[in-house]
Amino acid sequence: MAGVDYMLNGIALDSRYCRVTLGSGLFAGVSVSRSKVSAPFRHGTIPSGLAPSFEERSLTLKVTAYRQGAIGRDSGMGSDSSRLARLCMAPNPVLSRTVNGRKQQASVELASLEADDGGTVLDRVTPFTAVFALPQVWWRDPEAFDRPLAVNTTANLWPAARTWTQKYWTRWSGEENNSTSLLADFVTMWMGEENDSTSLLIPLADGIPDGMFGDAPITDLILRLPRNTTSATITDPVSNTGVIWQGAANANMFTYLDVGNSQAWQSSNDHQWSKSGTDVTGGLDYPAGGMLQCWPNPVDNGYRLTTKLTGSTEPLLAHARRAWW
């Protein structure tokens, strides 16, 4: 894949003596649950209503390793083939890539690593093929953002790029009330919580590229419910998946719902994104469509969630990492 730089466990695979010449990340296969129905003079299918499931995908890297001394004036007997082998066989490998300036990563498992037959030239050039399995299917943002969600409405987790305009005057070009006004020529937003996160500013002339906020389902959201919440239902209007929680009101505790691991806990810490505190998983449930997956809208690529709470009108907070195919 042109213009993509790969790293394994934070170490660049591309070096002076090692080059990734090909990287493939084909789409994952899609499986849809359907039931066949047949009767005299009638036939058809009944969809289950569940969101599609995705098979484990694989990534193939073609890597060429050079012996030191094969390039320029360097000398030595070492080869980057041993470095490549060490990286590929490290425990708990994490493969990273940079696409159009966006860093993406995935937990992977090494499926195979072998030298290509006939590729070695006098021990100077050794091409390898490395195949990795991606059990979690998607590439994800290494950084998680804490995105506020208004309650009892449908709110944007990540906005649709095509809707970004700012049609209002921003400042006088000269004397107040006696000069032309200047229209905003940029879009800006908080990437996380207001006044407590990095901000984004992009000139309108450049536009916001499709997929900047992700283009794959987000399956590992952690949601923080406000204090005093007694029930919450959060659903994705695209996939009809969701998560439901019911429990006793607590004026001192936030309730956290980890939809990726089907766990819930309460903590007085306002950013307790790993399980700690009081376990309240017993109040966790989900609708008929299945556990929450936040899918991009197929028309405008925006990510939205519909929220319904009792016990509080404070906003939810979603701990989210962007996801890409």
Rank of each mutant, 00 (worst) to 15 (best):
A2R: 15
A2G: 14
D5S: 15
D5P: 02
L8Y: 03
A12Y: 13
D14G: 11
S15F: 08
V20M: 00
G23A: 10
A28S: 14
A28E: 00
S31A: 12
S33K: 07
S35A: 11
V37P: 01
F41L: 15
R42I: 07
P47K: 01
G49D: 06
L50H: 11
Y66F: 15
Q68E: 15
G69Q: 07
S75T: 14
S82E: 14
R83S: 10
L84K: 02
P93G: 04
R97A: 05
R102K: 06
R102M: 09
K103P: 00
Q104S: 02
A111R: 12
S112M: 02
G119A: 09
V121T: 10
R124H: 13
R124N: 15
T129G: 03
T129D: 00
F132W: 09
W138G: 11
D141G: 07
P142H: 06
F145L: 12
D146T: 08
R147C: 09
L149R: 02
A155E: 02
P159V: 05
W164E: 15
T165D: 11
Q166T: 05
Q166D: 08
W172R: 09
W172G: 07
S173N: 12
D185P: 04
T188G: 07
T198G: 13
T198D: 13
T198M: 08
I208M: 13
F213Q: 01
D220W: 01
L221T: 00
L225A: 03
L225W: 01
A232S: 01
I234P: 00
T235N: 13
T235F: 04
D236R: 02
T241G: 03
G242S: 10
A248F: 09
A248C: 01
A249G: 12
N250I: 00
M253W: 03
T255H: 08
T255Q: 03
G260R: 06
Q263N: 06
H271V: 08
Q272V: 05
K275V: 09
S276N: 13
G283P: 01
G283I: 03
L292D: 00
N297P: 04
R304M: 14
T307W: 00
L309A: 10
S312V: 07
T313W: 00
E314Y: 04
A318L: 09
H319D: 05
R322P: 03
W325P: 15
